[in-house]
Design a protein around this nucleic acid. Structure first.
Length: 224
DNA sequence: AACTTCGCCAACCGCGTGGCT
DNA sequence: TAGCCACGCGGTTGGCGAAGT
């Protein structure tokens, strides 16, 4: 039986008050992030360390970009999700100012539905079986759907799917998908997933899986 | 106006992992 | 090598406001 992360009897739960937020901000400004377990006591907060960490990362961090997602951010999330699956922290790491929680919520509340309405299964980014036929006509597809990697659908046979079409595109170089997913020396943004990327470096097999062109033909480079 | 349903999002929970001893 | 601890991640929940009836 795992020990609870903190003494639950003495901790607050639920929404954070302004005073609590301020205490946390003040403490981190003064002492920096880290040592979340001891932070609550040191900062005078009746919260568990986990809760403090989450509050800071998802809401209080000064570099957070709040508000609606831009269209290019949406596109990027969808493309990254097709490649990485539900690796929200990795996806968020490619979106400066966005948190994994924010990306996950946005995916679940907006993007999933959006893809489904376009006849794409959000779980595997394949065209779903019940995809209504008129939409199969590339002429009637929305520009959005086209940009999600199925623009060359007319070149794929009926049993094909968005993923393999995307793959086909990748064989042509995928010029519009400059995601820099191969582990680079300098990631495009200060990511909160450095460890994860280091892990990928340590695991060349997995790394290979997310490099375009290295997956078996007809498979989506998912490694989950 | 009152009630119900739906959708969003902040927060919680449990588990996996890496570092340290 | 094993065990413990702290951290980080992803799935899930619950509260609240908006929309619908």
């Amino acid at each position: 039986m795992r020990k609870p992360c903190c003494d639950k009897q003495d901790t607050n739960k639920g929404a954070w008050s302004k005073q609590e937020d301020q205490k946390l901000i003040d403490y981190i400004r003064k002492n920096g992030e880290g040592c979340w377990r001891t932070l609550p006591q040191a900062a005078g907060l009746l919260r568990c360390g986990k809760s403090c960490r989450l509050r800071w990362i998802n809401y209080l961090r000064p570099d957070l970009k709040r508000g609606n997602f831009a269209e290019d951010e949406e596109d990027l999330i969808i493309k990254l999700h097709a490649l990485l699956g539900n690796r929200w922290s990795l996806i968020a790491g490619r979106l400066p100012g966005r948190t994994d929680n924010e990306v996950k919520n946005y995916w679940n509340s907006h993007l999933r539905r959006k893809l489904m309405s376009m006849g794409i299964d959000p779980n595997n980014h394949r065209l779903s079986r019940n995809f209504s036929l008129p939409h199969r006509n590339p002429e009637t597809m929305t520009g959005k759907a086209m940009s999600f990697g199925i623009k060359s659908i007319h070149n794929c046979d009926q049993e094909s799917d968005a993923a393999s079409c995307l793959e086909n595109d990748s064989s042509a170089g995928l010029p519009d998908l400059n995601l820099d997913l191969a582990i680079s020396v300098s990631p495009p943004s200060p990511s909160n997933n450095v460890k994860e990327e280091q892990r990928l470096v340590k695991e060349p097999k997995m790394l290979g899986d997310i490099e375009f062109g290295s997956s078996p033909p007809g498979t989506l480079p998912l490694f989950r």
